[in-house]
Write a protein that binds this DNA or RNA. Structure first.
Length: 156
DNA sequence: GCCAACGTTGGC
DNA sequence: GCCAACGTTGGC
């Protein structure tokens, strides 16, 4: 990245596991458990402290964007990859050469009303948003500025 | 719980 | 390098 322009992201979490309310309570959290290379690469190579993050509730009723956070750390090794026998253990990883990398995100706000997936789909201005594409299941994905600004104007 | 879509693994 | 089998994601 040579540009210093603000960037926007969307990060998915199952609220039964970790919700926007959990983030509101914790204020900051390490985004552990990402085990997809493309998602990791966004965090490792492209995120910058201060970038905006749309916090998306997946596998919930209804799914949708629950609030806003910001990237609050440089990338670093996901500690859960070193937890031998744990769900997120990565036997190939060493401290010197970690495989999975994450960032911290900080709570910004919870939307008064969750912007449901149906609502997103119904908004013509968001038609090209990645999260709305069929079969799209990346848990960390970029959001175009035009879409991000539209969403932010919408929630006021 | 179902299942389509997608990513990863591993035999060849 | 191909691709079938398998595992996961995530909406419904």
């Amino acid at each position: 990245m040579t540009s210093s322009a603000v960037q926007y992201w969307l990060m998915k979490s199952e609220p039964d596991t970790y919700s926007i309310d959990d983030l509101a309570r914790d204020r900051v959290t390490a985004w552990t458990g990402v085990r997809n290379y493309q998602a990791r690469n966004f965090m490792r190579d492209q995120m910058r402290v201060g970038d905006w993050v749309f916090f998306y509730h997946s596998n919930s009723t209804p799914p949708g964007i629950a609030g806003l956070a910001r990237v609050s750390s440089a990338p670093y090794a996901d500690p859960t990859q070193f937890e031998k026998g744990g769900d997120y253990a990565e036997p190939r990883a060493t401290r010197e050469k970690p495989i999975w990398v994450l960032v911290d995100i900080a709570f910004e706000r919870k939307f008064e009303k969750l912007i449901s997936l149906d609502t997103l789909r119904a908004d013509a201005a968001l038609k090209e948003m990645l999260v709305l594409k069929k079969g799209q299941r990346l848990s960390v994905q970029p959001v175009e500025g035009v879409h991000a600004r539209h969403l932010l104007a919408r929630v006021g």
